[in-house]
């Protein structure tokens, strides 16, 4: 093999071209994510810009020459915010678990079954993807609400007083599972399709039952898709607004709804921004776990 030393001038040109190519997304990220994040952190720690009347309009504004955590202390000591945070975590974790479990079961069914029914399921699970969240939310409300479609049908069979999940945290979970399933099954399905049939047959050959094959052979191969689905569902549900606003309870509320209420109805932009910073930090931790998990998995399977 002949090794050719790079020519410096060409190398510079290449480097410059590369920088120019990456600069648009980098600048976009700088202006849309990094700059607002820095601004939000400064504002929520008492660094209030003098030229921003919206930021100054907070009715209980904390303004300080040096960074302070007073806004966060007040926020996190409020029983209402504590309840909001607790519900947000509960709904998020329940949604992630259910999306992963239901999505994985559906993906496994489609991967390992043959015949007409799996083909139908393969089409059906995609349907929620084509229905806007607002429409789907109202559809779920109409179906599950007290005296709605489901209860009317059940009443015909003498089943009455079934509790409705609508306007409860479970209603939000239901909505999040509905909207999250297509993405989850698509991703997990493609992950399962990537597991070579020979690996499964080799496990069968040494005497593994279907359950053992799933647990010891198949699932370790789809850790990355599982992590992607888990992380993205977590971040999506954590910051969601439409489903919890339409299907969730009035109080406590999920952080996305609470943030909007604080920012608009309560005229409290500073705690709203503090909530946004907290949400961003939690999402960052989830993102970091995802990056750590995928890089670890890829190192093992490289």
């Amino acid at each position: 093999m002949q090794v050719v030393a790079p020519v410096p001038s060409r190398s510079w040109r290449h480097a410059l071209t590369g920088l120019l190519l990456v600069s648009p997304p980098f600048l976009l990220m700088l202006f849309l994510i990094v700059a607002p994040t820095v601004q939000a952190i400064l504002y929520s720690t008492g660094q209030v810009p003098t030229d921003n009347i919206v930021f100054q309009s907070d009715i209980d504004l904390v303004s300080s020459a040096t960074p302070t955590l007073v806004v966060y202390q007040r926020l996190l000591s409020s029983p209402y915010v504590q309840a909001d945070l607790a519900m947000t975590f509960q709904v998020t974790i329940a949604s992630v678990v259910l999306v992963l479990v239901v999505g994985y079961i559906l993906a496994l069914y489609v991967r390992f079954s043959t015949g007409l029914l799996p083909s139908i399921v393969r089409v059906l699970y995609l349907i929620p993807m084509f229905i806007p969240v607002v429409i789907a939310s109202y559809g779920l409300i109409e179906f599950f609400v007290a005296n709605g479609f489901l209860q009317t049908i059940l009443a015909q069979f003498g089943i009455q007083n079934m509790p409705s999940p609508i306007y409860t945290p479970w209603g939000i979970v239901l909505g999040q599972v509905w909207t999250g399933i297509p993405f989850a099954v698509l991703l997990l399905g493609s992950g399962l399709d990537g597991v070579p049939q020979e690996l499964i047959e080799a496990a069968q050959d040494v005497g593994a039952s279907f359950g053992r094959i799933l647990w010891r052979i198949v699932t370790p191969q789809v850790v990355t898709p599982l992590l992607i689905v888990g992380t993205f569902t977590f971040i999506g549900v954590l910051g969601s607004y439409t489903v919890p606003y339409l299907i969730g309870p009035n109080a406590p509320q999920m952080l996305g709804v609470a943030m909007t209420a604080y920012n608009g109805s309560y005229q409290r932009p500073q705690p709203a921004v503090a909530m946004a910073v907290l949400t961003f930090l939690i999402a960052t931790v989830a993102g970091a776990i995802y990056v750590w998990g995928t890089s670890r998995t890829e190192r093992t399977a490289a």
Partner: peptide, 14 residues
């Protein structure tokens, strides 16, 4: 009571 060696080895990568 058989055991197979597959064409592409089929070793479990993890």
């Amino acid at each position: 009571p058989t055991a197979m060696v597959f064409q592409r080895y089929a070793l479990w990568p993890h």
